[in-house]
Design a protein around this nucleic acid. Structure first.
Length: 224
DNA sequence: GCGACAG
DNA sequence: ATCTTGTCGC
């Protein structure tokens, strides 16, 4: 009974290692005018997944378009296998947009993953779009203390390799974990993260996608 | 065997 | 992720 799940997990790990070979961690994106944020929420006690894709204008950060997709949940949440659970619905939501975005910001890791295939990387590969991962907490990797000021950053690494960066988007507030998803280098990923988070801890893309996926309302203008 | 563990 | 109100602090 438990062996069945074990074999499926082992197969998923092999698939991740296979797909990870195709992930591109160097910049390969054109001019960015439309940046999308994606996120997934759950309803019906976790039986239904609801993904939101929100497109923001760059620069300006106005919301240009919002798309929603719902699907029955097929897999449970297993650390390291998040993308198998969320990528399908996210792709469906992005597919409902009038036009594909130039860059996608995901709520989760990019290559800062045990097998180098976090949601952002998996989604980028599947849609052949530039993506970056901005997670609220750590999955793997070690790092030193992060400077307290906004913009402060330290590398997130494992052994010899640098998987991403731990970045402070707001002075004195918990940092976020940034890593390349697909076709976006680490430096570019960090730059976009800071550019998209001028006021709050999380990028505006993630905040608006999260709000759209959960039905709540947030502050979208920044007077002052 | 004992922790750690994106959302 | 989700269940949930007010409250402490800058």
């Amino acid at each position: 009974m438990a062996e069945m799940a074990g074999r499926r997990i082992a197969a998923a790990h092999r698939l991740q290692r296979c797909l990870a070979r195709r992930v591109e961690t160097a910049d390969r994106l054109g001019p960015v005018e439309r940046v999308a944020g994606v996120d997934v929420g759950f309803e019906e006690g976790g039986r239904v997944a609801r993904a939101a894709a929100v497109v923001l204008a760059w620069p300006g950060l106005e919301t240009l378009e919002t798309a929603i997709a719902r699907e029955p949940v097929r897999l449970p949440y297993i650390p390291g296998l998040l993308s198998f659970r969320e990528v399908p619905v996210i792709a469906a939501a992005l597919g409902r947009l009038a036009a594909p975005p130039d860059l996608v910001v995901c709520d989760g890791q990019g290559i800062a993953h045990p097998r180098r295939l976090g949601v952002a990387s998996h989604l980028g590969l599947r849609l052949e779009l530039p993506t970056i991962g901005v997670a609220k907490s750590r999955l793997i990797g070690e790092h030193g203390p992060v400077p307290e000021e906004r913009g402060g950053r330290v590398p997130l690494g494992e052994g010899d390799e640098t998987l991403g960066a731990v970045v402070r988007t707001r002075t004195g507030v918990r940092p976020v974990y940034v890593s390349p998803g697909h076709r976006v280098g680490l430096e570019t990923a960090v730059a976009w993260t800071l550019a998209l988070a001028p006021r709050y801890r999380l990028p505006e893309t993630t905040r608006r996608a999260d709000a759209a996926a959960s039905g709540k309302r947030i502050r979208e203008a920044f007077p002052r």
